[in-house]
Design a protein around this nucleic acid. Structure first.
Lengths: 151, 151
DNA sequence: TTTTGTGCAAAACCTTTGCAAGCTA
DNA sequence: TAGCTTGCAAAGGTTTTGCACAAAA
């Protein structure tokens, strides 16, 4: 096991302090090829830094997400979301600003399904495309903020 | 506001009992066009059936999911999952049997992004395609089960 | 030295479960 | 009626917070 974050890479924490805990956590996230949950990350990190606390893991995850270093693999923020299943496949764009969700049709779905099935040997029964962005309204608001000097 | 579930539609609860609570919850889920979380569903249902309990909501959601009437909008079951963001977009197939995740490239991503952006007016910064299915291994196992009489 | 980050313990959430009572078939 | 469902209250998990101490700049 090796440290892989160089100082250069940690530049990304710009402004924030680089601590041994943060470096460790980010390394583990990067080595893991994804799909760690907070607790699993905590357990792995503890092997190397036994005094580490769970709160630090959560706080670091929030920070990394804020900085765009990691992504939360979720449809919408927090909690589970449910919806009635409809016959036609439907896909979503979620606005990062206001949470608004718009559905769209995806003409490529069938083709993608076929391709992936062929490539991976999976028998696929569900395809879902989700996108994130800013809706027209929030986009304007952000542009307004930018030109008036806010972040 | 109207009841929309006819007895016919409730056939889908086959075997299970049709109670006023279940009917109400399913109606709300269907009317809502999705994206309700348990708590929001609970609040809406309570307006019409004030004695309803949260546990019933959770129990019903499990049941509906079991029966395939709704879908949980989540990448993988339970909890949040995080992964280091890499430069190249990557998409996933998840095996419903064993949880295995395989990533794949999606040549359509850019095109879809463009299309949706045009259709919705969103400024899109992330596209994600996720599929569900059974991997080769689990598929064989399931076929074995089927021919030997299991469900 | 100043400011930000950490660990710990407690609080706040969200989800599940046990049990007696109520309702469906 | 018999058995499945419900509501309530309590338990189980996960995530967040307050505070005093430690570490980074």
């Amino acid at each position: 096991m090796q440290m892989i974050s160089t100082e250069g890479e940690m530049q990304e924490l710009k402004g924030q302090r680089i601590t041994s805990q943060r470096r460790l956590l980010l390394d583990l996230l990067r080595q893991s090829e994804g799909h760690l949950d907070a607790d699993e990350l905590y357990r792995r990190a503890k092997e190397q830094e036994p005094r580490l606390s769970l709160s630090t893991v959560y706080r670091s995850l929030h920070l990394f997400k804020e900085l765009g270093l990691i992504e939360e693999r979720h449809f919408i923020e927090e909690h589970h979301h449910y919806e009635a299943r409809s016959e036609t496949e439907h896909h979503h764009v979620v606005c990062r600003g206001c949470g608004k969700v718009i559905e769209f049709e995806c003409p490529f779905a069938a083709k993608m399904k076929q391709d992936v099935s062929r490539q991976t040997g999976f028998e696929i029964f569900d395809v879902e495309v989700s996108m994130k962005g800013y809706c027209e309204h929030c986009r304007q608001e952000r542009e307004g903020d930018r030109s008036s000097g806010k972040t």
